[in-house]
Design a protein around this nucleic acid. Structure first.
Length: 557
RNA sequence: GCGCCUGUAGCUCAGCAGGAUAGAGCAACGGACUUCUAAUCCGUAGGUCGUAGGUUCGAAUCCUACCAGGCGUACCA
């Protein structure tokens, strides 16, 4: 519909240009969209601001331009009921009611595929998220990243991309050896030895639990081994345990990855050296003070960065460069990394590195998710894995449930900080918005069951007289359903999963209002059939969105 | 110091590539269960969109400066 109107407007404008009614030379992009303010007294179904856009160029009053356009507009009466000017020069189109009914046919025909787009054209995209070090359990902040990444991947999939979900396991480097040393220290303490705990070691109780497991399985065998060997054993044992735990929680949280990529594997295959060699060949590496520097300042970074230390060891950045080179070698056209906002200082240097590797930095996107600050009974809780003060994701899931947690993480824009008060979340659980949406779905299921008990089978859209759906609330509901594909598109283009949450809340709200004002199952057979078809369409769309959000769509509550 | 994010109703937040009279939810107050699920609905009240300039026909939205909060600025990961 929008395209039809845009074409008609373009024709009318060029006609006005020729006759000199509108004094513009270069054509402006015409946009037809639903009016932004739905509370308007007489809202047009679709609206364009083109006359306002043209006003300054034409040096003519916008209303005069709008009038000229309208006078030259040729539209099919079967589609458009009325065209009118409004406000400073908006042109509003009132679409024929019958046109909206097509949405219902589309939903019935496409079912769960309703809203599918071909935005991506099958292009391969990778979404990498969570990627927490296997040095401790996932905390609440990782939960937000997991929810955002998972839902974004779902959205992109529905928008026609070939999406891979990957978790990058930072299983190499100092942090890992610190993990091993922490576990070994606890192992020795549990074995009755007096040993000091390493500075900046991991202090959480889970370290003791792991040490105890080693004792259970290996006894005191480790004490006899050389230090380095014992540390290596502890590191390997602990990281396997922790990673297994991470995988379990993510599974419980409804997040599944296509690929778990090990940082260590980059070293094992010599890919880190290879990546640095690529950069050398491309002359982006410089040796200074015994270290190798990436000349990133020439590529938009604040300064140059060390990739190979003077002590002969690569930096974390070197591994990350190799990792991203590997991503491109695997054929991804678009690479999306989801990071905690505390890593934002890292974007420019990695972007610079990607340019240096010869890849288009535009193809590399980082979605920053602002930190979750955890509050318990009003008291802020620090979330440092090292100090062992954190609330794990699993604890949060136990308290508020998977559906509520996922929904809560997505009720905010990514770049807005989230304060998660566990007490509040518990208190609100009965009134949590997620139930509001699920309840709408369950309610519709209940109506359909009720109808079936009364011997009324759920009609197809073709079988009913849609003209009976003529209440404002009904048309508004259908319009809301019609909006969904465009919403999904915007959400995919902007990488903004939260839009789905707000959409589904709105849709559920409109349904609840409708439910209270009108009965679906009435004495009138035709009316009942038409309304059943309508609510069934709503149910389909609610189901699609809940599915994208990874939240259950219950048949009853 | 420099950089990134945020600042919208008492609280938590929307506001989609500037558009029409800035919207929800919660909390507050007043109502609705012989009716398809009251996990719901209806009504009332609540605002110099951090401040000051600028761009424009038009700014919560774009630009500049400042104020406040958060985060970052390693040969750590």
């Amino acid at each position: 519909m929008e395209q039809i109107l845009e074409a008609a407007l373009a024709e009318a404008i060029s006609c006005c240009q020729k006759t000199g009614l509108i004094r513009v030379k270069s054509p402006q992009k015409i946009v037809v969209q639903p009016p932004t303010d739905s509370k308007l007294k007489s809202p047009g179904d679709l609206s364009t601001n083109i006359a306002l856009e043209l006003a300054s160029q034409a040096r003519q009053p916008p209303r005069q331009i709008a009038q000229a356009i309208v006078d030259h507009l040729h539209l099919d009466n079967a589609l458009i009921a009325k065209v009118e000017l409004a406000g400073p020069g908006f042109i509003n189109f009132h679409v024929q009611q019958a046109w909206w009914y097509q949405t219902l046919f589309k939903i019935e025909e496409q079912k769960t595929r309703y809203g599918d787009l071909d935005l991506g054209g099958g292009e391969r995209v990778q979404v990498e998220f969570v990627s927490a070090n296997p040095t401790g359990p996932l905390h609440i902040g990782h939960g937000r990243g997991a929810a955002v990444g998972d839902v974004l991947a779902n959205i992109l999939q529905k928008a026609g991309y070939d999406v891979q979900r990957e978790y990058y396991i930072n299983d190499a480097g100092n942090q890992m050896s610190m993990l091993g040393r922490s576990v070994l220290a606890r192992y020795r303490q549990l074995s009755g030895q007096q040993v000091s705990f390493p500075d900046k070691g991991y202090q959480g109780d889970y370290i003791k639990d792991i040490a105890q497991q080693i004792i259970n399985e290996e006894g005191d065998k480790l004490s006899a081994k050389p230090e380095a060997e014992a540390i290596a054993y502890c590191t390997g044992f602990a990281s396997r345990k922790i990673l297994a735990g991470i995988k379990d929680v993510l599974k419980d949280f409804g997040v599944s990855f296509d690929s778990w990529f090990s940082e260590q594997s980059l070293y094992d295959q010599g890919l880190v050296e290879q990546a640095i060699q690529t950069l050398k060949n491309r002359e982006y590496i410089e040796e200074r003070e015994g270290a190798l520097w990436l000349k990133s300042s020439a590529l938009g970074d604040d300064k140059d960065r060390v990739v190979w230390r003077s002590n002969g060891e690569p930096t974390y950045l070197a591994a990350d460069i190799a990792y991203h080179q590997h991503k491109y070698r695997r054929g991804f056209k678009k690479v999306i990394d989801i990071w905690g906002a505390d890593h934002h200082g890292y974007i420019n240097r990695l972007k610079a590195a990607i340019s240096a590797l010869g890849q288009d930095p535009q193809s590399f996107n980082v979605l920053l998710v602002q930190l979750v600050s955890l509050v318990r009974k009003g008291v802020p809780v620090a979330m440092s894995t090292r100090q062992g003060e954190f609330t794990t994701l699993i604890e949060v899931l136990d308290e508020v449930g998977v559906d509520a947690a996922r929904f809560f993480f997505l009720t905010r824009r990514c770049d807005s900080q989230l304060e998660f008060d566990l007490e509040l979340a518990k208190q609100q659980s009965a009134e949590n918005p997620v139930y509001y949406v699920q309840y709408a779905h369950a309610r519709i299921c209940s109506i359909i069951r009720q109808a079936q008990q009364a011997g009324i089978t759920l009609p197809t859209v073709h079988e009913v007289d849609l003209e009976l759906l003529k209440l404002t609330a009904e048309i508004e509901l259908i319009k809301k359903l019609a909006e969904f594909p465009a919403l999904l598109k915007g959400s995919a283009l902007a990488s903004e999963p939260h839009r789905l949450t707000f959409y589904v809340l709105d849709l559920a709200g409109r349904f609840h209002k409708y439910y209270h004002r009108q009965r679906v199952i009435t004495g009138h057979e035709g009316e009942t059939a038409a309304r059943l078809a309508l609510v069934n369409s709503i149910k389909t769309v609610l189901g699609i969105v809940l599915n994208l959000l990874g939240i259950n769509a219950p048949e009853q509550m």
